[in-house]
Design a protein around this nucleic acid. Structure first.
Lengths: 250, 250
DNA sequence: CTAGTGCACTGGTCGGACCAGTAGGCTACG
DNA sequence: CGTAGCCTACTGGTCCGACCAGTGCACTAG
């Protein structure tokens, strides 16, 4: 051991301490979503820093998705309910900077989605099953209604599954990664010449998954969901990267 | 359809446009990690905004982990290589604000880690296997050396597996969630009365996993890894939440 | 009682100022 | 000639004061 280990005194900037205090108040629950922060001029008195410092702190908090400020609002900044927006932003950055391939993203979805299905099978209640049925029904109707409606119904299905998994982290990550994937290829999906056939195939797959969930066969449902996602997305993944996806199909 | 659909003109703040431009330059690669941004005073000329605006933009970019500025640096802010720091931050916030339970976090790790093992089994090369062996060897040595060394070796093992999966997203998420979990319970682990027994059991489990990977049995390796994580962490999860973890054990 | 106006606030932006810190050139000393 | 140390010209961090365009509310005039 030997004497006390001194830490390098990191010069902590004023705005960081403001951020920390407000963050702490929000995360500990002393400030709930919907409540208002004092105005910037009030905050600069309370923290005894200048308005520039307060504003820089608010910018950081805003970038983290914790508060939002609106010009002209007679109240101060609003404390926001948690949204995965910040998570989404940093994952999108990751996708661009780390050059995540579409294959990696789809593979990740296959993993999360099939796990969610597996968990949902164990916890399934009538309500969740009904939601999945309803989403599949809307997918059927949407084959004619156009691609947007179909996509929305599909999202609703997977969202219902993710919620039914009982794991909020799976739910959020599923949501974030899905929207990144769709942001990359939604226009290609809409323009696919065989999109009607793909939609019908996708509906059958979803029906099979729901049937397996209803029957209580989790591993089967998980396998079917991976297959469904592979069949739906593999066409947009470069051929030489598809083997990584097939690795998850057994 | 009808006429052109007008979008509400969202009042875009000046600092946001600065953020967008710099972000674009970084993500598109025109600015590489290690390069320097112009100084704040130079930026305020180039963007023709005030220094406050430039600084607020830099705060946002810094919060997103894209740049870092240091007082006194004769150069401007430094463009950083991507780190999951921002992802980590927003996921930690998620964990606190959305009240993620330890069970959910561990469950997520079980899902990701076992999937990584499954993928690593398909792609395994001698180099990856050697890394895993080395990590297990270090775990063996660390039983005496204390908990810190053991934890580090354990992290190295799972990191090697995640890298071997060939999926950077799995790698990053594994890393982030693991550090959140450890942040929650690392002191409890260090204080566990039966920690030596737990370490020895964990080593056996890891050896079994590596053996299964070497044998090419991905599903077995995945199942073993879920079991290993369950046995290691279940003791810290409230009893009434453990069933959610057992759902992944078959 | 209501419609309209004005006021007192808000956040967004600007400009200027000072400070402590850094790096690199310059000077003076060995 | 080489080097140690100072000096200066920058940097980012912070503060101050000011102005603007919005917003909501109270008050007023009809």
């Amino acid at each position: 051991m030997g004497g006390p280990r001194f830490e390098p005194v990191r010069a902590v900037r004023a705005y960081e301490r403001v951020v920390e205090q407000v963050e702490e108040a929000i995360e500990s629950g002393s400030l709930s979503p919907g409540q208002r922060l004092p105005s910037e001029r009030e905050l600069m008195v309370q923290f005894s820093v200048s308005r520039s410092t307060v504003r820089e702190a608010l910018r950081v908090l805003q970038a983290r998705g914790l508060v939002r400020s609106r010009p002209g609002d007679p109240n101060g900044a609003e404390v926001l309910p948690f949204t995965p927006a910040a998570l989404h932003k940093s994952m999108t950055t990751l996708a661009r900077v780390a050059e995540l391939s579409l294959a990696e993203l789809v593979q990740f979805r296959m993993v999360l989605d099939s796990s969610a299905i597996l968990l949902a099978t164990r916890l399934r209640g009538e309500e969740q099953l009904a939601e999945m049925d309803a989403a599949v029904a809307r997918m059927r109707e949407a084959v004619e209604a156009g691609h947007d409606a179909f996509g929305a119904a599909d999202v609703a299905f997977h969202d219902a599954v993710a919620r039914a998994s009982g794991n909020k982290l799976i739910q959020v990550c599923t949501d974030v990664v899905r929207s990144i994937v769709l942001g990359l290829i939604s226009e290609k999906i809409a323009a696919a010449p065989d999109r009607v056939a793909l939609m019908r195939q996708s509906i059958r797959h979803h029906e099979d998954v729901v049937a397996a969930v209803r029957a209580g066969d989790g591993p089967l449902a998980a396998r079917l969901s991976r297959k469904a996602m592979y069949d739906y997305y593999a066409g947009y993944v470069p051929a030489d990267e598809r083997s990584a996806l097939r690795a998850l199909l057994e």
